[in-house]
Amino acid sequence: MDHAFEFLVRQGDNVLVLGHRLSEWCGQGPVLEEDIALANIALDMIGQTQLWLSYAAEVEGANRTADDLAYLRDAWDFRNVLLVEQPNRDFAVTIMRQFLFDAYHVPYLHALESSKDQRVAEIASKCRKEAIYHLERSSSVIVALGDGTEESHKRMQAALERLWPYTGELFLSDETDDAVAESGLAPVLNDVKARWLQTVQSSLKDAYLQMPDNDFAQIGGKSGIRHSEHLGHMLSTMQVLQRSYPGAQW
């Protein structure tokens, strides 16, 4: 297995899948301001996808492009963590999923800025500027809704409990994680976890939300072994154009 390719596809797929999920809110946000904000974040993430998957395609050297990787792979070839493919459900789940990911994304990208691979460091540095804003926004909304009305608090707590089992996968190292940490391409995940936990604990405290006392982790996303059934449905929408009209361009 080419660990560098695998690593790059994981980065690209995380933001591709989450970006697409966010785009599903476009035109349906609870208020205009949130609708536009979610669409902006989605666009940021699709832009980040382009950087990661273009590099992945180059590293692979199999004559595929970023578009081929995004639109012509099936669910089992996707390498995103399970957290980002979870469906939007209500706004509480959407924004909690965003927060849990952003809180990981910022310190992870920060660490990637010291990657031995110059290109990875440059991509990370560009992405982190955007991610910092994403985290600032999602953490403010977490606090506003957690410390909002009885209903909003209840929904936020439920969203947190629903998504919590999907956070463990972000930090459980597998063979690829170990290999890219060893080669200096990427950080040791456990080091990132400490910073993630710090952010999560402090925001949840401000939001009067109770952090679940359970470290059971659903895994199988970043290895591609066991994606949830939701990913295939999402891809069928995301990829329909290229599947129906192969090679279509505009």
């Binding site: 205009l32 301001e33 904000a37 804003y133 403010s140």
Partner: peptide, 20 residues
């Protein structure tokens, strides 16, 4: 003009709505 629960959030919303 826009809606926001407080000033901080208003700045974020303004950034998203008007500076894209």
């Amino acid at each position: 003009s826009l809606h926001a629960p407080d000033g901080e959030m208003a700045i974020k919303n303004a950034r998203d709505v008007y500076t894209r």
